[in-house]
Design a protein around this nucleic acid. Structure first.
Length: 158
DNA sequence: GCCAACGTTGGC
DNA sequence: GCCAACGTTGGC
């Protein structure tokens, strides 16, 4: 069992969108970064825990808990010339990019904001707060996972 | 809107 | 294979 954090701009696809999706599940597609792709393809397994992070909004932070709902498969958007994530260099026989189904588990009682994560010494080593870290899919340790859940569990006391 | 940081591209 | 130019991310 491993843990992950995935980033999404809520104006593009929010945690509420995921909750409203059929089976509370959606394909995590459009990833076009090799490091993130490797996590999707090689690191993630069904049942892994996922922290759902909202970026480029106010406030930014972890808003919900999700899980990996199945294995990685080719991302169809790479073959669609009309899709903004179209990759003309990717071949159907050997797809470059993959997607993973993500299922919403539950919304946190409150948003665990980026500012709080930065202020929490227990989370100082999270990739999220490392200088220049922009990975949209990143591993999270068991301890970091537990701490973020603890912070988000109660509306009281940030 | 700015800009730091990083990834990708392409000329050589 | 180097590296400058360019594009993207994402907080502020």
């Amino acid at each position: 069992m491993q843990y992950w954090l995935i980033k999404s701009e809520p104006t593009v696809f929010s945690f509420e969108d995921l909750l409203a999706a059929p089976g509370r599940t959606a394909a995590w597609d459009g990833v076009r970064n090799y490091q993130a792709r490797n996590s999707l393809r090689d690191g993630m397994h069904a049942g892994d825990g996922v922290l759902y992070y909202h970026s480029s909004c106010e406030p930014t932070g972890v808003v919900g808990i999700a899980e990996v709902a199945g294995p990685a498969e080719p991302d169809p958007t790479q073959f669609d010339p009309r899709d903004e994530h179209f990759d003309p260099k990717s071949k159907r026989a050997a797809p470059t990019w993959v997607q993973v189904p993500i299922r919403a588990r539950k919304k946190l009682a409150r948003v665990v904001e980026l500012t709080e994560i930065k202020a929490n010494p227990a989370l100082a080593r999270m990739l999220l707060v490392q200088r220049g870290s922009r990975l949209s899919v990143q591993p999270v340790t068991r301890e970091e996972w537990a701490e973020v859940l603890r912070m988000g569990a109660s509306k009281a006391a940030k």
